[in-house]
Design a binder for these strands. Sequence first.
DNA 1: GTAATAGTGTCTATCAGACACTATGTT
DNA 2: AACATAGTGTCTGATAGACACTATTAC
Lengths: 232, 232
Amino acid sequence: MTGSAAGSGWRDAEGKALIDYPRPSVAVDVAVLTVQTGRLHVLVVDGPRGGNALPGSFLRPGERLAEAAERALRTKAGLVGADFHQLAMFDAPDRDDRGWVLSMAHGATLPRDELPVDAELVRVDGRTVSEPLAFDHADMVSRAVDDVRARYARRIDPSGLLPDTFTVLELRRLYEAVFDRPLPKDSFRRLVIDAIEPTGRMSTSGAGRPAELFRRSGDAELPAGASGLLTV
Amino acid sequence: MTGSAAGSGWRDAEGKALIDYPRPSVAVDVAVLTVQTGRLHVLVVDGPRGGNALPGSFLRPGERLAEAAERALRTKAGLVGADFHQLAMFDAPDRDDRGWVLSMAHGATLPRDELPVDAELVRVDGRTVSEPLAFDHADMVSRAVDDVRARYARRIDPSGLLPDTFTVLELRRLYEAVFDRPLPKDSFRRLVIDAIEPTGRMSTSGAGRPAELFRRSGDAELPAGASGLLTV
DNA sequence: GTAATAGTGTCTATCAGACACTATGTT
DNA sequence: AACATAGTGTCTGATAGACACTATTAC
């Protein structure tokens, strides 16, 4: 337990003061996912050894992991307002050749238009990034995709990739991008219709009949069978 | 990224060598779940401040988190052979009054008869432990329950809570314990029957018609709708 | 035989998926 | 008018859940 030893005076079974053990550096890396041209993409930055890498940072004293992740995105990509989800701690002792560095991978999601116009995005095929990334960052992207799919299968656009109001078509296009598969128009509508709130307003559509605008309903969950429709 | 700075000579934006930042202690805590008398229970040990706590340990140099978790279980509870799953990093700066300690919560699962006979078990109601635990360990238990349910909804007894062969009744009793709700006998059988392998052998039952013994099938997954049946 | 449990046939309500149809806008 | 997209009615096949029935053991 976190509470079994350490602190000045605490000693382990062999009599060694636990506080004296060398401590690892702790880092955070963030896979920022977005949707561009109907496909999932991940934000990358220049890595320390060249090549692409996920934005990340070292944890500072007293800081929480989510704060470090927010700081990394702000300083390295000019991003604010993402919501972070812990994915996994990557802890292979040799994963970073500069020393013993544990890294907590985070997933985040932002609409394309909240990213800088010159942000470098790499396409995600299925659940894997389409070109190599530094370190174990490609594995982190896969975990981020799994996480965003699991969350989107439970609720309607929980990370706000769409604007406040949207049509059912826009919502379906988003889900087709997230789950990387076509979704039948009528079944999809019936699946989500009870989990979104109609606004009276209509979309100023380009062509064809205008579609009604909906907004996310506070806490509405998708039916349990939704994961079947989405992931099969 | 984990690779943006640090190492001798690397400096952050303010010119401070990142390697010089104070580093947190990193610990692991393990919520070992088991089934006793048809209910989920969690293994606890004596905490450093009295009261019950999850077994845990500090991470040692070069060690992986799973190794630290295995060592914690071996030295504090005499357990071997559990499979660990990372749950979340608990990182509140004040979660441990002895210093800055991050703890990676792990979930593990073992059959009751692989635990010591005198192991102290606390019942789990729903997804919360039925009595207070030290630190944030009660939250860890909830996460462990969520994790084991998610894994059991995808596959048949992936953690081997049952012996190598088992009857459909034994499997159903296990799932009723894990999901904390009664499951209809016939629907449950039809749900799992294609994901387990019949052995020719029959259970030496106490009373009634003998039941066939099955074994886990290598990779068989439960249908996607299973989560509906199990969690609704 | 009775008791007890294993396993199956069947009916119903629900729902995904497909298809076609109607509705309402633009040009 | 033609065209395009929104939204709905309806049929079908699959299946969860309920129920009853048959099957096979112990006593």
